[in-house]
């Protein structure tokens, strides 16, 4: 398992993990993203996670469920998740199909995502 190169990268900036998806992911790669991110929250003592999904071709029920799971698991471990970069056509398809990201915070782009985290984490936040 995991012998293939990851189609996403996870970088750390201060207490925030930034996960960028590079291309369309299949289900096992989405699960790998979930596993890697959840692991990194502990090892990097992260307080926030930003997931950039701009390169995802679709967000179907499995993709959005995985994102919600990541956010919920991270929340239980004390980190806040923001999803950024959902494309307009992807968002429209999600609405028409009734797929949602639930209570997970979203932001337009990386910059907005960082601002959101800064506001939510308050004075404890160190970039």
């Amino acid at each position: 398992m995991d012998t293939e190169p990851a189609l996403f990268s996870i970088l750390r900036q201060g207490q925030v993990l930034v996960a960028s998806v590079h291309t369309a992911l299949d289900d096992s790669q989405l699960l790998r993203l979930q596993r890697d991110l959840v692991g990194r929250v502990g090892t990097d003592r992260a307080r926030g996670i930003i997931i950039d999904v701009a390169a995802l071709d679709v967000l179907d029920s499995f993709g959005s469920k995985t994102l919600r799971d990541i956010a919920e698991i991270a929340r239980l471990r004390g980190a806040l998740t923001v999803i950024v970069g959902i494309q307009p056509d992807v968002a429209q398809a999600m609405v028409e199909l009734g797929i949602g990201t639930g209570a997970v915070a979203t932001a337009l782009d990386l910059e907005e995502g960082m601002a959101h985290l800064a506001a939510a984490l308050g004075p404890a936040w160190t970039p």
Partner: peptide
Amino acid sequence: DRSDVTLVATVVSEIARNIV
């Protein structure tokens, strides 16, 4: 158009996953 393409692709994704 772009949004319809994505919509169709999302449906196909769901159905294909059911098969798998």
